[in-house]
Design a protein around this nucleic acid. Sequence first.
DNA 1: CGATTTTCCGTGCACGTGCACGGAAAATTT
DNA 2: AAATTTTCCGTGCACGTGCACGGAAAATCG
Lengths: 351, 351
Amino acid sequence: MSASEKITIHDIARLSGLSKGTVDRVLHNRGEVSKKSYEKVMAVIKELGYEPNVYASLLAKQQNYSIAILLPRPEPGSYWELATSGIEKAAEEEKQFGISTTLYTYDEYSAESFREACYQVLSQKPSGVVIAPMFQYETQVFVQELANSHIPYVYVDTKLDTPGGYLAFYGLPAYKSGYLCASILLMKEKVKELLIVRVTRDKERQSDPTVQRRAGFQDYIREHNPGCTLRSIFVSPTDPAATDEALNAFFSEFPQVRHIVMFNSRIHLIVPFLERHPAKDMWVVGFDNLSANVAALKEGTVTTLVAQHPELQVQKAIHALSEFIVFKRKPAVADNHMHMDLLTRYNLEDY
Amino acid sequence: MSASEKITIHDIARLSGLSKGTVDRVLHNRGEVSKKSYEKVMAVIKELGYEPNVYASLLAKQQNYSIAILLPRPEPGSYWELATSGIEKAAEEEKQFGISTTLYTYDEYSAESFREACYQVLSQKPSGVVIAPMFQYETQVFVQELANSHIPYVYVDTKLDTPGGYLAFYGLPAYKSGYLCASILLMKEKVKELLIVRVTRDKERQSDPTVQRRAGFQDYIREHNPGCTLRSIFVSPTDPAATDEALNAFFSEFPQVRHIVMFNSRIHLIVPFLERHPAKDMWVVGFDNLSANVAALKEGTVTTLVAQHPELQVQKAIHALSEFIVFKRKPAVADNHMHMDLLTRYNLEDY
DNA sequence: CGATTTTCCGTGCACGTGCACGGAAAATTT
DNA sequence: AAATTTTCCGTGCACGTGCACGGAAAATCG
C-alpha cells in the first residue's frame, strides 16, 4: 500500500555483478547472454520484484504507433458522420502518446468495398484497429488476419463473436434498445396496430443491429400488448418519390395507424410525408441524433429519438486500443454497453 | 492525421534565440523571464504548435501520487468486501504510473465515523479521492473541502450532485435496477401481493440507493400490475432470532405470499428461515453476489440475484482518477452506469 | 600453439524535460 | 562611480531505459 521503492536496472546490475546492458538483454530476452548470467539476473529480478519504469521505457523507445479506424463512409448528415466526428477528438488526446489515427471507409452496402478497405488496412500494418463490422463473413476473415499478425482490434456499433478475441466492444445493447423503443411507443395507451418502416437496402446486409432491435421490440409487444398488429413497409433511402408512394399506399389502406417506428437512423426519410399529411396524435419514434432527425424533433414531426452517441463509442474504442498498445492494459470489461438517451423536443436544449 | 514531427523545447530555444532553461520557465510560467523573451518564446510555441512529451516530463518530474479510497468498512462476506477486492487489482495496475492507493473505511451507519475518516483523508492531502457516500450532508461538506484544495474526486455506488463537480461516477442506475427487479418477480404471473424485506438500520442512513430501487420497483408494479399489494417488514442485520420472529409473524398472518424481494445485499439474512420453511413455488429476489447469497442461489433458496459488480466500479473509479492525475484526461462521460447481471442457479457457472 | 571465429558483456550516448546552481547584465542604492 | 541588489538567463546534471558499438574472453580451427 505504501510505496516509493524504485528498483532500477542499475540496482539489478549491481546486485548481480553485471552491467545494465546485460540486464537489459535479459529483460527483453534477446540473447547474447550466458546461461549463468541469465539465471543470476533473473533471480535478482524476482527477488527485488523489479518493475520497469514505463515512462523511461517509452521515452527511450521513441516509438510511433498507428491506429486504423474502419467505418462505413460518412455521407453528409448520416449516422456515420456522427461517428466520424468522434475520431478527431480522440486523435488529439492520443497524439501525445505517440499514436496517430487513420480513417478507412467503405460502402456499407458493398462487401467488395469492405474487403478492399480491409486490404488497405492490413497493408499498412497498424498497431491496432477499430472496426464497425457490417459484413459478417468478411469481417471474420479480416480479424483472423489481424490475429495472425497479433494486431489488437476493437469493435464499435456491432459486435461479432470472433474466435481470436476482440479487445473490447463499445456499442448499444441492440436488443434492449428495441425493447426500450417499444415501451416508449406504448407509453400512453394500448396500441392496436403500428407501422414499422424499413429501408430497402437493409436486406442486403448480413450483420445488422436493426434486426436485433426489431426482435427486442417484438418481444416487448408480445409481452405487454399481445393484441397489437405489426405492419411493415419498405422505403428507399435515395428515392423520395418512391418513399412517398409507399407511405401513401400504406395509409390509404390503414388510415387508423397512429404509431410509427424505424430501427435505423433514417427516420428523417419519412418526415416530408408526415409534414404533408399532418396528424396531431401521431407517435413517431426513431434512432440517432442526426441533424435532420433533430430538426424533425424540434418541429414536432418526430416524437422521440433514441440516441446512441456513436462519437463516444469511437472515442472510447480508440482510447482502449491506445491503452493496450502503449501500456498493455486491457479494459476492465470487454463488452461496454453505452447509454441510450431519449431525446424529445423538451429535453433537446440540454444538447 | 499523419504525424512524426516532434518539436522539442530545444527547437523552441533555438528558434527564439534563447536557452531551453528559459523556454522551460515560460512553459511553466514560473517567472524570472523578461517580458520580451516571454513573448518571443510564446510566439514560437504557438507557431510550431509545440506539445510537451508526456513521457519525458513524467520521467523527469519523478512524482509520486496517492489516491485515497473511502468506503464503508468491509465486514467479512459483505457487499463492501466485494468492493474492496477491486482495489488491489487496480492498485497494481496504477503502481507503474507512480500511484499508490490507501483505503480508509468508516462505519456505514455512523456519520461520526464518516467525518472522522474524511478528516484522515484530508490530512493526507491525497492527489485524488474515491468516495462511496453514505451521508449526504457530511459528504457535501467533505467534497467542498476537496474542491477547495483542487483535489479531484470520483463517486462509486451512489452519486451526489455536488456543486464543485465530481470527475466521474461509477455505479448502477439505482432506479432502473429496482424496476428490473420487479420485472423479474412478475415474470411468470400476475402477483396479488408480495413482501419487501428491509433492514432495520436502513432507516438511519440518509443517502441510500435502496430508496431509489424501491421507487423503481413500485413504479413498475404500478404500471404493470396495479392490483398488487406491497407489504413490508423489517429484519435485523445482527439478530437472527429477531429476524426469524419477524418472518414468522408475517407468514402466519399472510401465508399465501409467494414473492419476496430485498433491495440491499442482505438477502442471505432470510435464508435460514426459508430453509426451515421450504416452499416450492417461492420467488426470492435480492441483490449482489456475496458468497452467502450465491450459496443460497445454488441451493435454490434464492431465485435471482441482481449483481452490480462493485469491484469493477472501484477499479474503474481508480483508473479514471489515475488518468486525470497523471495525464489530465477526463473520462469521456461523467456518469458511467455499469451493467447489472442477472444471476440464477443456471448461469452461475459462468462466474 | 597461433589464428580465427564465436560468445558474451561493458560502455556510453540518446530520448525530452525539470530544476538547481551560478553568474552576467541591468537596475538600484550609497 | 562604486557597491549592492534585483532581474534575468544559460549550463549541466538527473530521471531510467534502449540500443549500438566495440572489445575481452572463450571456443574452435588450422
